[in-house]
């Protein structure tokens, strides 16, 4: 399995280049032409990233998230939800790097095969950094009303976290 995950990206690149070759395309010229778009996209994304990271950084360092997760943890304890994973569930939708650090911490503290460790790993993989994705995608077009799209995205996140908690015993 580890071998599979190591080979997948080199394999995809090779397949793409190979197909281009047998179809007689100027693969290198095409590649360079496309790569230019990558710079444009990143430059366009940069201001959004600054904005998002600023707000998320302030939110995290203010201690508000910890405060909320303590309250939530106490409420959910009765429902067989381990309180250790609440901070992860809260931070996962807003910050990829912070949740990665937190998940690694939880898994190494409780062990890879424990219930908490398994739930943390599942939460990490089962969804994307919702707010980040929404901000990046909204930014690619002119400013629009965004409230509508947040609803299904957040509900989907909550449902997949609940599912993880329910199926891992």
């Amino acid at each position: 399995m580890m071998y599979f995950s190591a080979i997948i990206i080199p394999l995809i690149i090779s397949i793409i280049v190979f197909c281009g070759l047998i179809e007689n395309k100027k693969v290198y010229d095409l590649f360079c032409e496309g790569a230019k778009d990558g710079i444009k996209m990143t430059v366009k994304m940069f201001p959004t990233l600054i904005g998002i990271f600023l707000a998320i950084g302030m939110l995290r360092s203010s201690g508000l998230l910890n405060y909320l997760s303590n309250i939530l943890g106490n409420i959910l304890k009765n429902l067989n939800v381990p309180s250790e994973i609440i901070p992860l569930a809260l931070i996962k939708p807003i910050s990829g790097s912070a949740s990665m650090a937190l998940a690694t911490d939880i898994i190494s503290k409780f062990g890879t095969e424990t219930r908490i460790g398994m739930i943390a790993a599942t939460i990490m993989a089962a969804s994307e950094t919702t707010f980040y994705v929404i901000a990046i995608y909204m930014n690619s077009i002119k400013a629009k009303k965004s409230k509508f799209v947040i609803v299904p995205a957040i509900i989907a996140d909550i449902v997949s976290i609940i599912t993880a908690i329910c199926i891992i015993k």
Partner: peptide, 12 residues
């Protein structure tokens, strides 16, 4: 990363 995948996407 963006440049790499945009380039490959163009070939695709």
């Amino acid at each position: 990363n963006m440049c790499l995948w945009c380039g490959l996407m163009k070939i695709v």
